[in-house]
């Protein structure tokens, strides 16, 4: 009887709708020219993109959707089209692309991971973490319910979430990092133009301050924690309505009337730093570097 039960169970697993439909497996190599653009449109499933030194795009996909290709010399587009009985099931993509290719990736639900490309990056999702490692050009990343992680990028970075965190590490270049409900963390970010904002979340910035730089950081319900080098020359305008302003080093406050920003001048005061929070504290720290 026990063997019969096992046999029936095994048969049920094999015959379940999930397994009756074969998982589509795609592995295709497409030739492209230099500086090509690779577009990927998915609905549900992860997208993982890495690079190689070949003028070709390798597309590997597994999942329930039909995968369509459109390839020209300067453009490759890959699209997952959901089949009638595949609704709600994922299709995962793994692409290997030329190192100088531009990337445009859109998915509704799934993680996006992009590594190593020197071309433009445009990655958008509704749900799912977006992770970019590297990048040497414009990086435009956005999600509603997904967090954003960018590291090692050199170029202009725009990272926008709505309901999740935004984290940038070791980024060099202009930065725009915003969310509504989540923290914004900028670690070792070397930028001359920074705009970082949240509504319900703390904002952390650690990085050098350039004399001709402009740095704007604001949150409504969160702490602003900023660490700048001891040698920074900057004029800091710090405004908090219901919070405290703290500095871990002696500062000379030139203006601190109610309803107005506290202004602090460091060195020659060249760079402009604007810090605003309504219900949070502002913590100003100095590092030795």
């Amino acid at each position: 009887m026990r063997y019969l039960t096992i046999a029936i169970g095994f048969a049920l697993i094999i015959m379940s709708p999930e397994t009756l439909r074969p998982q589509a497996a795609v592995d295709t190599l497409l030739s492209v020219g230099a500086n090509a653009t690779v577009e990927v449109e998915n609905m549900i499933g992860d997208i993982t993109i890495s690079t190689w030194d070949r003028n070709a795009v390798r597309v590997q996909a597994t999942g329930a959707a039909d995968v369509h290709f459109d390839s020209e010399d300067s453009e490759v587009s890959v699209e997952a089209e959901m089949v009638p009985d595949g609704e709600g099931r994922a299709t995962d993509f793994t692409l290997t692309i030329p190192v100088d290719a531009n990337v445009e990736v859109h998915t509704i639900e799934g993680r996006i991971s992009i590594e190593g490309t020197t071309g433009r990056i445009d990655a958008q999702s509704v749900k799912g973490l977006i992770r970019v490692n590297g990048g040497r050009n414009t990086i435009d990343v956005g999600s509603v319910e997904g967090g954003i992680e960018i590291s090692g990028a050199r170029g202009r970075v725009e990272a926008h979430s709505v309901n999740e965190f935004v984290s940038l590490t070791d980024v060099v270049g202009d930065i725009e990092a915003t969310t509504v409900n989540g923290p914004v963390t900028l670690e070792r970010c070397d930028t001359q133009n920074l705009e970082a904002s949240s509504v319900n979340g703390a904002i952390v910035f650690r990085g050098p301050i350039h004399s001709d730089g402009w740095y704007s950081i604001d949150t409504h319900n969160g702490t602003i924690d900023i660490t700048i080098p001891r040698s920074a020359n900057a004029t800091i305008s710090a405004f908090t309505y219901n919070g405290e302003f703290e500095a871990d080093f002696p500062v000379t406050v030139t203006e601190a009337e109610p309803g107005k920003a506290t202004t602090i001048t460091l060195g020659s005061g060249d760079a402009q730093i604007e810090l605003e929070t309504f219900n949070g504290a502002i913590l100003l720290k100095r590092s030795d570097r």
Partner: peptide, 19 residues
């Protein structure tokens, strides 16, 4: 879920504006 998320976040901004 997405609609609710968008609306909740817009409401959060509205609340901030109200404050």
């Amino acid at each position: 879920e997405t609609v609710a998320t968008v609306e909740a976040n817009l409401a959060a901004i509205d609340q901030a504006i109200e404050e």
